[in-house]
Structures are given as structure tokens and as C-alpha cells.
Computed example of a mutant assay.
Amino acid sequence: MRPAKKWMEQYDYIIIGAGASGLMLADALGKDTFFSNKGILLLDKASKDTNDRTWCFWEEGEGQFDDIVSKTWNHIYFGGKEFSKRFKTAPYSYKMIMGIDFYKAYLKRLKAYPNISFRKEGVSEVVDYGNRVLVSTDKNQYSALKVFNSIFDYKMATHQKKYPVLQQHFVGWRVKTGLPVFNADQATYMDFSIPQKGHTRFMYVLPFSKTEALVEYTLFSKDLLPKEEYEKVLRDYLNNDIGCDNFEIVDTEQGSIPMTCYDFSEHHTHNIRYIGTAGGWAKPSTGYTFMSSSKKVPVLVEYLKTGNPLDQLSYKNRFWYYDLLFLDVLAENNDKGHYVFETLFKNRDPQLIFKFLDEETSFLEDLNYVLGCPKLPFIKALLRRIFRDENPRKSTL
């Protein structure tokens, strides 16, 4: 073991990354009396004092994050090539949380837990030595019994060929317009009216008022685009579809979320567990991670109490297989995405879609959902998957 740079501080648990999953986990450990005598260290290279992202999710009624929700919508709009409709979402609401509001609230909570420390340090290496885990940062070295790591690299998933790896990549502009062009109570969930160009491409609009909104150009595909291509489509959409040629860009955001059913299990060890996007917590078929993390954190905390090795915990369920077939469809024919979603929204209400994507449906509701999708692409994907799994040497993606 390499010598410490200055000293070797020892902890029971170290959480790497103060994003959604890291902060949720730290808070869950802090408020559970089972861990009151455990030393916990949270590390992040950033001080988390800027609004670097937004999270959106749908939820039925009131929820645990309502005190930091900055905006809700009670209607969504779906736009397709042949079918478009405005839907009421009740009893669901579509909710948005600003990153800075989440960070402030959760970092404030952590200050109330005497056994939790937060330090601004970038992590360079994490090694499991069997009885302890060594964490090296740009300033110090630490050891812990267990480490939860949220640092993600696409190479974690792209080194294999068994499961497709797509990206949900986007560039968004928060704009202010000179004229009232937005419906403040309607979120554009997906608008496929834009050119698809062989991929799954749609616009996503979150209005804050009649004159202010976040407008995002989003793709489900393997590769990113040049930044100027995202920006051109955004400008064209605002000009031609929204009907606004006079607007001010007040903020921007961009990102890429992995869409894959690769379960990341080979990266876990007895004492290291990857969490968040790095742990496969992003919903494979949608990229939504926030609520997925909020559901997985309590399971992880209860499992931690058992003392069993961290790499033996599995979150896999039947929805994993549904997501796998959907991603197989997109990987084989990426231009079919708009057709899949348009058929689904034409045949099924958004309430069932939300419930299914939240993995809260019964098996009969699953069947109802599946029958609302186009049949042929998924039958073909199922047959390819069966053949691929039975003949791994012939597998190609």
C-alpha cells in the first residue's frame, strides 16, 4: 500500500460524488440511527454551489421533494408525424428540480449530522484491498470499510458487446422571449416533428411562464453531434415551430446520459459499490435517473445493514428485460424511435405510460402497455435476442 500524502484518515463509509445519488445516500445514512456511530466522508471535486443541471420526473400527488420542486406541469404535449395530442396528466404531475436547490437543501441537511463530513477534493484512485478500501484524492488519502462511487465513464459500458449502449444526449437553452409564446402549464414531453435524419430526435420544452422556457434538442443514438448542429436545430425550432424570432438565451445546459441494460456488476467489489449513473441506476429506456435513485437508495441502505458483500446486491427485475428489448429495437433501427413512441401515445394514456416507466405496474398492466406498442419491431428484437444469447459467438450489434 502506498504511503499517505500527509495522513491516512479512516472512515466507515466514503461516498464519492455529491450528485443526486451521492447526496441521497449520505442523507439516508445520516438520518438512520443504525449508522449514527459510523464515520462517513462525502467527496466531490466541485463545491456544488452552481446550477449545473435540472432533474424532471412525474409523480402522483405530493412527494418527498416537493419543498424544492421549482415548477410543476399538469399537461403534457406529445407531437408525432401523424399523431399529436395534449394530455392531462392527473393524478400525476410533471415536476422539475433545479440542481442548485437540491444541492443547497441536502448539503444543509448533512451539516446536521455530526458523523458526516463533506470535502471538496477530486478522487484519482479507488482500490479495494480486501479489508479496507484506499481512496486517493488530489489532496489526501483516505481508507474506508465501504466505498460508494458515482464517477461514471462510458468505457465502463462500451467495452462489451452483449448489450447495446446508446446515449441520450442533448443541448438546452433557457430562453426569454419578447412575446407570450409558451403555455406555462404544458410541458412538451416529446415533439418528433423535427427531421429525424436516421435517428431518434425530438424537442423537449419546459415552460416556466408565457415568456420563459427551457428548450432542449434531444437524441437517442450512439454518437454525439457537433455543438453547432444542436444549436441550429434549437434556433430553427424556436423560429419556425414556436414562432419566436426574438429571444434571449439566459442559460444553457448540455449532457449525455447512458441508455443501456449493461448492469455494471463486474465493476463492483465486496467493498466498493457504484451508484447513480455509474451503477446503472439510470432507467435504460428513458435515461431518467433522479427518481430511480430515490427508490434504489433505501434498498441499498437496508442491504448495507446485513453486512453482506456489496457486489451481491442486484436490482434486476422484469422491467430490465422490457428495457433491453426496447434498446435492441433502437440499436438495430434507430430511426424507428419516433414510430414506437407515436404508436404508444396514440394507443395508451400517459398515466399508464408513467406507471409502467416507474416500474409500478402489475403484470396485466405490463401486458396492456406492451400491446400498445408496435408489434413487429419488438418481435424481431426478441428473436434476435434469443438467437444472440443462445449463440454468443455469432453475436453482433
Rank of each mutant, 00 (worst) to 15 (best):
G280V: 00
V340W: 04
E266G: 05
S294V: 03
L327I: 06
G255S: 01
L300V: 11
Y288D: 09
Y303E: 06
K336Y: 08
T269I: 00
Y322P: 02
L310W: 09
V329R: 00
D335Q: 13
L310K: 04
Y288S: 02
P309T: 00
S265D: 13
K296Y: 10
K296C: 01
S285I: 10
T306D: 04
D335K: 14
L313A: 07
V340R: 05
M291E: 11
P309R: 04
H268D: 11
N308K: 11
G307D: 00
G243E: 14
Q254P: 00
E253R: 06
V250C: 15
E266Q: 09
Y237F: 05
G307R: 00
V340G: 12
F319D: 05
D241S: 15
M259V: 01
E332F: 14
G337A: 13
S294P: 10
D245I: 04
V329E: 04
S293D: 09
V329Q: 03
N334K: 05
E266T: 04
P258D: 04
N317G: 12
T252W: 02
D335W: 14
S292F: 01
D251Q: 12
F290T: 05
T289S: 14
L330T: 02
H338A: 11
S314I: 06
V250E: 15
P309E: 01
Y274W: 12
G307P: 01
T306Q: 03
V301I: 07
L238G: 10
